[in-house]
Design a protein around this nucleic acid. Structure first.
Lengths: 205, 205
DNA sequence: CGGTCTCTTGACGGAGTTCAAAGCTAGTGG
DNA sequence: CCACTAGCTTTGAACTCCGTCAAGAGACCG
């Protein structure tokens, strides 16, 4: 589970993608961004393994270097609802559990063999104190997540599952890396109905 | 539309509610918070009037002192979807339009005669520079909004309209101030179906 | 009073679910 | 290389949830 199998060079390359992401959002000095990136630890997560489970307190904020994760909920009937997919250059955490230190309602699971860079809460708060722009970075990231979720909320309130699936395949170029079961959980429909939507689309072409 | 009819004393009382809100989220000096609050301008909005319309660029961030607003979307079939209700001590803005200065997809409308405290983008950015904790304030506010929307997203994916209506009336104590048409737009159903849900609940009691 | 807006009710249709069964795929071990 | 299993996907019939359309009943306001 640790990063034992990564040598010094590959670790540096993986941090590079995080550094590029941060540089595109704020303008701090290169040295400051480096010192922030060094607070992160590499973690490998095998396919189907969970970084977080319901009831646990989320102790990390993670940046996906490689692979795909899903953050999902299981309701009292046992049905799963997927809140986000997170792939390369996306962030994963349960923001409510992390910031308020309360048990999570969610699961975070790797859908492929994956690699994440993880920062702990104390290190993140240290960064807030020592690097002024970090507060701004996370404000902007949260805003972008919120805007995307608002868009999705509107789509779910106004569009049929058929249209939502077409939109999803167009806007989410990695849909071929996902199982149809997971896409159905994201769209809020059953796997059976998604299958019927897909066969209808296939006939139309 | 301006605050001509408010005297000095009532203006001060209205700013007091904003100050209390801010003090409960960050710990800056009273003087700093006062100087931030003084960047806001009082604005009265009559029932059914819009603070923002689709296509306009949102130039403000607003704190509701009195009344209720709805922020909503109209799809290409003419149906309305309500993204949020905002009542006393809530914030209203189109965060995407405001931060990225692009035309809004949304309408913001007063549902009662209302009063808001408004801050412009330049004044807000001035505050970011001069008061360190303001960045944190808005990060936390955005986080809270995101967490609430995540919860709603999960509910919409997993629950029936019947259950969502029951939840809404329990968790939203001001539902009696809203028309059923607006509640239906928030829940993502038609006014007719909400009416049937309501009559079914009435029979059960 | 009249007009507009909101809420309700019923018949019908479509969107999406449930349940059961079967085909298809990929990994696994011999 | 084959056989076996487990997981993913499809299909169909019956059913439920929710929308559409049309009509009417109240409620509010000038």
């Amino acid at each position: 589970m640790t990063s034992g199998q990564f040598n010094y060079k590959s670790k540096a390359i993986m941090r590079e993608s995080l550094k590029k992401y941060i540089e595109s959002h704020i303008n701090s000095s290169s040295a400051e961004i480096d010192s922030f990136c060094n607070l992160f630890q590499l973690k490998e997560v095998k396919k189907k393994c969970c970084l977080l489970k319901k009831g646990e307190i989320c102790k990390f904020e993670g940046f996906v270097v490689k692979g795909i994760f899903r953050i999902y909920h299981i309701d009292n009937k046992g049905a799963e609802q997927i809140l986000y997919f997170a792939l390369e250059n996306w962030w994963i955490t349960d923001i409510d559990s992390f910031t308020n230190e309360k048990p999570s309602e969610f699961y975070i699971q790797a859908l492929e063999d994956s690699v994440v860079l993880i920062i702990s809460k104390t290190d993140k708060e240290f960064a807030y104190q020592s690097i002024a722009q970090i507060e701004k970075l996370f404000r902007i990231m949260t805003q972008k997540t919120l805007v995307a979720l608002q868009r999705r909320m509107i789509d779910n309130l106004s569009k049929t599952a058929h249209q939502r699936y077409i939109d999803f395949t167009e806007k989410f170029p990695i849909h071929y890396r996902l199982s149809n079961l997971h896409i159905a959980s994201y769209l809020g429909i059953t796997r059976e109905f998604l299958s019927k939507i897909r066969s209808k689309i296939a006939i139309e072409k």
